[in-house]
Design a protein around this nucleic acid. Structure first.
Lengths: 249, 249
DNA sequence: ATCTATATTTCGAGG
DNA sequence: CCTCGAAGTATAGAT
């Protein structure tokens, strides 16, 4: 490995730790960090060029390569997503994928080069996304309208699933679209569902409710113009109602 | 700096190089790479937890902090975008931002810790995005339809600019929406424009053309159902027509 | 500041 | 494998 020798190599020396499942004999999953003066040329979905400058090259075990500057938060200047393959020549790295996109990294000087074994990550536990909001509203349809009852979650139509299908106090169908943030896209989506469902004589008439933690003014205007009722949902309050024994932060 | 001492510190020792413009006296922009066994808790737009495991911590000069596993391409498991502030305590990093989102990184063991000066990146040069496609189609409206002529690029309406306004062979107005990849959103967008423009007696009737390098089947179906014609554009061929002296890949 | 449209979006689920 | 919807989307441009 040419460039590994060029920089100050710092290999991890830790021993017994949960191993990556693909660790059988010779290959160990490693993340590799290189600081180098480099130039980058990408040809693929677009064409992009980075002039020679010092940057961070991050090579992960999944095969991905990303080129970072010391800015733009976590987004790299340039990258190649897996599956892809890195070929190292002295002074030139070439990363290629199946559809023949390529990233050519011309390296002028290596300032640091180290590898580190991380193993398989136990993974992220999330809470508070749309799924949970849907779950809570399904359990408490009264929040959407007085006397509402749930008919079905993920009610399937020809063009996709409606988040909730409810019935109002008078027994009429209501299609509910749930978003964390209510924007125009969501209104359009619900409009398509309503258009389709109202053509079905077994369902029609179907009213619409657009529920979100926060609804943008333009989305609200568009929705109301189309006769769709908007409901701003207080997620934390709803979660509090749901279970008092749930630990809150 | 507590943790810098704990790991094997490798500071860059390079000297004369173009400096960051914000380099005045004491502060130099550095990227910091830490490999550590850590646990992460994020509370903000959602709540997320990462159990203790070895990971890469990337701290950039813009203040951002990102936590990477050895997979998922360039996307970190968790992060905090600038502007935000990192407070280091022995064994605990706390990253906080203005709206009081927080990222708490509990560090069990530091396996590597280095800092590197990169300076300001000269930046990325791109080519081949939607703007270029629009430019090419504006120069060759005949590709959109026999006898089409260009009236205006970015024709402004009350709800935004229509990519191209053309006239067909019979002198009728045609609104053209251009996308790299034609999806349902684009059809909705064009539909809104057409609805509005067809209310204007000076323009009506206005036909619609949806042009893209690739048009998804659902988008095509929706468009055609609404009387919008779809045109698949061969970008490379069009670019070839545009200028023979342009180097092709 | 708000809103719109784009992104080499990435990522995951479901057919 | 595609197709679709969600994302702590982020980001840039226009109003």
């Amino acid at each position: 490995m040419v460039l590994a020798e060029a920089g100050g190599l710092c290999e991890d020396r830790r021993t017994a730790r949960p191993r990556s499942p693909d660790f059988g004999g010779t290959r160990v999953a490693l993340v590799r960090l290189v600081i180098a003066r480099c130039q980058v040329d990408y040809v693929g979905r677009l064409t992009a060029h980075l002039p020679m400058a010092p940057r961070l090259l991050l090579v992960k075990a999944d095969g991905s390569v990303s080129i970072h500057a010391d800015d733009r938060a976590y987004k790299p200047l340039n990258w190649m997503s897996p599956p892809c393959w890195l070929e190292e020549q002295p002074g030139v790295w070439t990363v290629r994928n199946k559809v023949d996109e390529s990233l050519v990294i011309t390296i002028d000087e290596v300032l640091h080069d180290s590898k580190h074994e991380l193993g398989v990550d136990p993974g992220l536990v999330k809470d508070g996304v749309e799924a949970h909001l849907q779950e809570l509203l399904a359990a408490h349809p009264g929040v959407l309208g007085e006397g509402y009852t749930l008919v079905r979650r993920e009610y399937m139509t020809a063009i996709g699933p409606v988040d909730l299908l409810c019935r109002d106090a008078d027994g009429r169908s209501v299609a509910v679209e749930i978003k964390r943030r209510g924007e125009i896209d969501g209104v359009e989506q619900l409009t398509r569902y309503l258009e389709l469902m109202n053509r079905d004589p077994l369902l029609a008439p179907v009213a619409g409710v657009f529920a979100a933690q926060q609804i943008k003014p333009q989305a609200r205007t568009l929705a109301e113009d189309r006769g769709i009722r908007c409901v701003a949902v207080d997620y934390d309050a709803l979660r509090g109602t749901e279970s008092k024994d749930l630990r809150l932060f």
